[in-house]
Design a protein around this nucleic acid. Structure first.
Lengths: 336, 336
DNA sequence: CTGAAAGCGCTAACAG
DNA sequence: CTGTTAGCGCTTTCAG
């Protein structure tokens, strides 16, 4: 058995209260005593039982990161990046982090209550019922990469619209006039934002977008490639395609290559996420950078604030995005 | 405040003992009583406090996944995949999972003891001192993607050697005789295995490997591209390159393109991990598939067994690998 | 089948 | 500065 406070008390000849103080507020105990206690503790390989402490203190500093996605791969590069930011900040703030998928969300909230979880970060497309459940059980919530209509919750978002806007701006500046967009079937929130960002930017520049230049596909390269082939086989084909994310953009590049359309010579392409694949493609993919680590860290800051009822905390934090220009974008070549 | 067992006891008119039984061993209480208890519990929004339970039961079912890597990106695709497997299985077995990086491993073990963590999965290049620390504190350990000399611990490994062997076999079967290998600076264990796998396979086929055909580079594409350019600029250049992983292989492909060497026409390339980038490259990258999810799940199974002192459990589990053939490998073209 | 009582390991008044 | 005492919320003998 592990040594307890009583063992240390006995061996060091002080009361359990003093042992307790030695570990939680050392300055309240005389140096000599403290030393004796530490010695005994070392000899017994003792370290305080955090569970027992949590129980009497009635707070656990325990939080969870739930990823709400239905696909096979939950921890894709994007969510893994957020996870890292969360892990880091949680560690720094001494919060105990539990990471889980939210597929069995039916029991999730009850479970969270049982496990004394004080706050959750909900990543992605969180079910409204799940959210309501948590609220009913008084656990603090922060949403990331999502926004739920009608619910006023702290959330952390990337500036999707502005990111897409930057891509469109850059393309237009390079002389592109006929720009298409290929979107993957991501969460409703993300699709909505990126689409809106595209339309807004085009409108801002006074360009109309024809329905034929907006396409939707699955989230895998194959699906994107297929859709892109159609898009690029139109009689009047676009000179640039804004990809819904980097995977989609890679699909566009594959389609172009198959159709003998050179990138960036005849077609410019942009992606979104600035994921690790960008520099692996040839030419390298221009993409919108999202600081996922910062997003994760912000989640924890907001959560902590919310757990401490700190109402000054910003409700919605938008993390800026930035276009990273690489080889796939070029001045448009006007034929004729 | 959250409702406690006492509140339920009071409202339902039964003792706390009965309430407790109703939740932990329902069959020991008469149906009518049970019903009354459930009703009261519902009315009070009560659910048992797992912490209190753990405390009296003296076991927490709490485990941790520690990723031991020094780089910026801890949760790369490989470790994220393992993480998913771990999450899934842990969920299924009702183990509470804490995920963390092991950068501050000095306090890690003591922390684990405090937090009553009963087992850890150590991912990657775990520090021997960290391992010793955990052992001293009696926490079960499973190693994944690593093997530590002189320590007899359960571990889960991918069949690295055989994977590389399959790649080499396939290349040789396609007529390649001059095959080079470009390795990234991964953990010592991984580099060792993949290198050995390459040498063994070449030897098996009776080919000698010259020092000039083995190169080591960083773990990023840029570094790989640079190294590959050198490798491919040799007067007598190889007809195939085995990449240490997919990122390295992508670098080889970039280098080839820059040097005007066509893939797979003049150069075949293989990767390792079968990561999501494989189908995004053009041509698509042939790679060695590792079932990371299964690796993660196996970790948890071994850990559970170890926690229950089940000595029949296999100590070392090797997960098979398989070559996934895609566009980057082709029959060698003999000039002359 | 149910209840009373003891205690898991720790902390927090309250006295000294 | 240190000790005594009374719990935190739950489970589990041991009696009924």
């Amino acid at each position: 058995m592990r040594a307890t406070i009583h063992d240390v008390s006995r061996l060091s000849g002080v009361s359990t209260a003093t042992v307790s103080r030695t570990f939680s507020s050392p300055n309240q105990v005389r140096e000599a005593t403290r030393r004796r206690v530490y010695e005994a503790a070392n000899a017994l390989n003792y370290s305080p039982n955090a569970i027992a402490r949590d129980m009497v203190l009635q707070r656990t500093n325990r939080i969870a990161y739930l990823i709400c996605k239905k696909q096979a791969t939950i921890l894709d590069e994007f969510y893994a990046g957020i996870c890292e930011g969360i892990m880091r900040r949680a560690n720094a703030l001494n919060l105990q982090l539990i990471v889980s998928t939210a597929d069995d969300w039916q029991k999730m909230a009850v479970n969270a209550q049982s496990k004394q979880i004080e706050g959750v970060v909900l990543g992605g497309d969180a079910d409204p019922e799940l959210i309501a459940d948590f609220q009913a059980r008084n656990v603090s919530i922060v949403l990331v990469n999502n926004r739920v209509a009608g619910v006023d919750l702290p959330c952390v978002l990337a500036d999707e619209r502005d990111g897409i806007g930057q891509a469109v701006d850059a393309l237009i500046e390079k002389g592109h006039r006929h720009i298409a967009m290929l979107l993957g079937r991501f969460s409703p929130y993300i699709v909505g934002e990126r689409y809106a960002g595209f339309l807004e930017a085009m409108e801002r520049h006074g360009f109309r977008v024809s329905a034929a230049d907006i396409a939707l596909c699955g989230r895998d390269v194959e699906s994107a490639t297929e859709a892109a082939e159609k898009l690029l086989s139109q009689p009047d084909r676009p000179t640039a395609v804004v990809g819904g994310n980097d995977v989609i953009a890679a699909g566009v590049m594959k389609a172009a290559r198959r159709l003998g359309i050179s990138v960036p010579g005849e077609l410019s392409v942009t992606g979104f996420d600035n994921s690790s694949i960008c520099p692996m493609l040839e030419p390298e993919l221009t993409s919108v950078r999202v600081d996922v680590t910062q997003m994760g860290e912000t989640c924890i800051d907001l959560l902590k604030a919310s757990m401490e009822q700190d109402t000054r905390a910003a409700r919605v934090t938008v993390i800026p995005t930035r276009l990273i220009t690489r080889g796939t974008c070029q001045e448009v070549v006007h034929n004729g």
